[in-house]
Computed example of a mutant assay.
Amino acid sequence: MTSPNVLGDSVAAIKAEILTLEDTRYDAVVGGDFELFAGLCHPDLTYSHSDGSRDTVESYLRKCRDKFYVYHRIDHPVIDVLVHGDVVVVVGEMNAAITANGTNKELANNSIAVWIRHEGAWKLLAYQPTPRR
């Protein structure tokens, strides 16, 4: 079940906005626009990785800027967008070609992204990928 948020936005409008933000955040890391990515994140972001490690927004951005993580390609099919007030959960996949700490990898993950309304804007609060293979 989904419900509009406290601002009265329609579920369809919220889903459309979140899907655009999902595209923007993935495009930002592939394109190396880490300032854009940072602007989409909640200060308390917990960013999990498919190897089980976790980062804060600061530690993740530092790794990206230092080229510990280099994203070459990401596709992210969405299976469902669950809207509950000012919390949205995006259920889907994250398939990518990356370099992590100098090692090239192909990722095939299921994923969950949690967005919340924070100071009038949608912000990424949590991300969790789970390897499919």
Rank of each mutant, 00 (worst) to 15 (best):
P4Q: 06
L7T: 04
V11M: 04
K15Y: 00
A16Q: 13
E17I: 03
E17F: 06
I18R: 03
L19F: 03
T20G: 14
E22I: 02
D23Y: 04
D23V: 03
T24A: 14
D27S: 15
V29G: 02
V30N: 07
V30I: 14
G31T: 02
G31N: 13
D33R: 14
D33S: 04
F34C: 00
F37R: 07
F37C: 07
H42E: 01
H42K: 01
Y47P: 00
S48P: 10
H49P: 03
R54S: 14
R54M: 12
D55R: 00
E58L: 01
D66F: 00
D66T: 04
K67C: 05
F68C: 09
Y69Q: 12
Y69L: 15
Y71V: 07
Y71Q: 01
H72S: 11
R73M: 05
R73D: 07
H76T: 15
H76V: 07
D80V: 04
V81D: 04
L82K: 02
V83C: 08
H84D: 12
V89H: 06
E93D: 05
E93R: 12
M94C: 12
M94P: 00
A96D: 05
A97V: 06
A97M: 08
I98K: 06
I98M: 13
T99Y: 05
T99N: 10
N104I: 05
K105F: 01
E106V: 14
E106Y: 12
L107W: 15
N110W: 11
S111R: 12
I112P: 04
I112V: 15
W115Y: 10
E119V: 06
K123F: 06
A126W: 10
Q128D: 09
P131M: 11
R132V: 10
